[in-house]
Nucleic acid binder design. Structure first.
Lengths: 342, 342
DNA sequence: CAGTCGAGTGTTTGCGTTCACATTATCGCA
DNA sequence: TGCGATAATGTGAACGCAAACACTCGACTG
């Protein structure tokens, strides 16, 4: 049953298949790429030969001849962070569904621009026809511009290439949802633990948090900076625990919320009895925190899918592939929020 | 400053560089692949031309001519599970350090064998020179055998390519560490919430858990099955809460432990006062659970690194690249365990 | 001082495919 | 019954690079 190979141990080629099926290589090519214009009977003969020889298209050769690779590049932060993983799942799905392969390059969290470009170039050299940027990076530099001229790129959190394009997920809406929930519960003000400054999301959420407070005539307290990690959330929690009168906190990720709540508890502040906490993401563990996290869900998988579809559309020169998944943030109320103590 | 391109818009090729530098294409090739035997002065001239034209090696052409792609394939479960993400980080590192690119294919959690083979074939066609299997799969089938003859594959949890090779991380040691910790604390027996049956780890841990109990003359209670997700941990927790007299549980992942502990709390059983819990993995959030999880750490990143290095060594035909990262499991005692109530 | 070696460089060939075009079969319709 | 149109197939030439081999030249050997 093992496919018989040509005498030398080289893998069977189109020529071998053509010979066995009694057709030209061009016909084999047509059958393999499914581009029609082949009689059913002929196609069947070719397929039989393919099967017998165990032939498979040599991607490098095909790509050399056609100029296409059907490879999507992804640059991600080298981390086990939930958001990256979930984004990846969506990207993979969309890519596979459209016959693309995904090539990944990871860069350290606060990598230098050079490290980033290196990753970009590695993917480009590898033949990536488009690149999804899952890391915060300045698109306006000349170096980035020339690269993007050659190879289309898209940022996973944007709706288009244009650096001013609206975000795929409205980050301001996220902050507004969180802050208003807290305010509506009766809290007098809301403190904010932000994510890492390098990320666009961070700034947008901070601004919207501030704006929402001001809209209600509240003077915002200072932002407490952190960097997405649970450890940084813990540190922020200690800071907050030392400030008297804090009853509500908007923290920019669930992972930080875990650290924050732990620090609060250690300091004798109960959540939500003394302090209410709203975070962002709705990771799988959010529902199983103690208390279960009230959080604003970001549809990471959908974002990944959307980014991939966007890029594929651009590569192939049409406007859209199927419908873009909707990516509206959504407040999920659980047990980490409550009205302030009377 | 923008690199001048040849008149037609095609990307510059080796020929263009050769012409500009006044050498043969072969010399350009030698310079690009850094294989020496080129006079410093000549190399400099070539590099200058490369720079001026913005030339980059065309991977597909190079790979067609040389028969090498320097691509590593990875098949992972399409999930945001912590272990997969961390494994990926290690793989990326090792690959990049050795000049390899990583191509990923994701399959659903309980995908059919066909879906798996499809992913494998996609990577192979894409030119992967070796494939890391991050999913549980039967290596003994004929279909798998013929594939592995062509393309070396290794399972991320094993120490070598050999399907019977010992596990990279001693799963029995993990279970033993967990169970003995609980027993030494004074618990009379230890219940076990297992992971998904498809995974090798699951069976090994169950066996070692059982064995460790028997070695101390304890008859093991029935295993409570789960599937790695926090939800399944929660369900297992409800089951356990309904059983009187349970004081110690060994649960096969931190993520399940979150669910388990939540269910226990809801049922009025305190952790660790009423029930002690030891889990496995030591994910980033483990230290921030309430209570902080006592867990057996698995060095996922190192496992990923080791798998990649192993594969690269085999691809290149030498025995080892640098030292293999050590991958010993390690008990991390935090606050989810305590002696049984008097 | 002829012979040998090796570093540096060039020439030719082939990798396995697809593209553009040429050719041949097939069909419908007047 | 014949003619044009269209479908099915074949032919030759790239695609951009590295492998294999050939060549040149200076340095070193004995």
């Amino acid at each position: 049953m093992s496919p018989r190979r040509p005498k030398d141990d080289r893998a069977p080629s189109q020529v071998d298949v053509a010979k066995l099926a009694g057709v030209s290589t061009q016909t084999v090519s047509r059958v393999m790429s499914g581009q029609g214009n082949v009689r059913g009977e002929t196609a069947r003969r070719v397929l039989a030969a393919v099967d017998e020889l165990g032939y498979r298209v040599h991607a490098a050769a095909a790509s050399l001849a056609s100029g296409r690779t059907r490879v999507l590049g992804v640059i991600v932060v080298s981390t086990d962070r939930y958001s990256s993983a979930a984004l990846g799942v969506g990207i993979q799905q969309a890519a596979a569904a459209n016959g693309y392969t995904v090539s990944t390059a990871a860069v350290a969290d606060h990598a230098s621009t050079e490290a980033f470009f290196e990753a970009f170039d590695r993917l480009e050299r590898q033949g990536a026809e488009g690149i999804i940027l899952g890391v915060p990076v300045e698109l306006e530099s000349p170096a980035m511009r020339t690269r993007m001229e050659r190879t289309p790129a898209t940022r996973s959190e944007r709706t288009s290439l244009d650096p001013d394009a609206p975000l795929a997920v409205d980050q301001r809406a996220i902050a507004r949802l969180a802050v208003e929930h807290l305010l509506d519960l009766g809290h007098e003000t809301v403190w904010h633990v932000s994510g890492d400054d390098y990320w666009t999301e961070t700034q947008q959420r901070s601004e919207a948090w501030e704006q929402t407070l001001r809209d209600r005539g509240i003077v915002p307290p200072p932002v407490i900076p952190a960097d997405w990690t649970p450890e940084s959330g813990y540190r922020a929690g200690r800071t907050i625990a030392a400030i008297p009168g804090v009853t509500a906190v908007f923290v920019s990720s669930d992972e930080m919320a875990f650290g924050l709540i732990r620090a609060l508890h250690e300091a004798g502040r109960a959540v939500p009895d003394d302090v209410s906490v709203v975070s962002v993401d709705d990771i799988a563990l959010a529902a199983y925190a103690s208390p279960a996290l009230t959080t604003v869900r970001q549809p990471f998988e959908d974002m990944g899918r959307a980014a991939a579809l966007r890029l594929i559309a651009q590569i192939e020169g049409h406007d859209a592939i199927g419908e873009m998944p909707s990516t509206d943030p959504q407040l999920v109320v659980r047990s980490s929020t409550a009205p302030p103590r009377a």
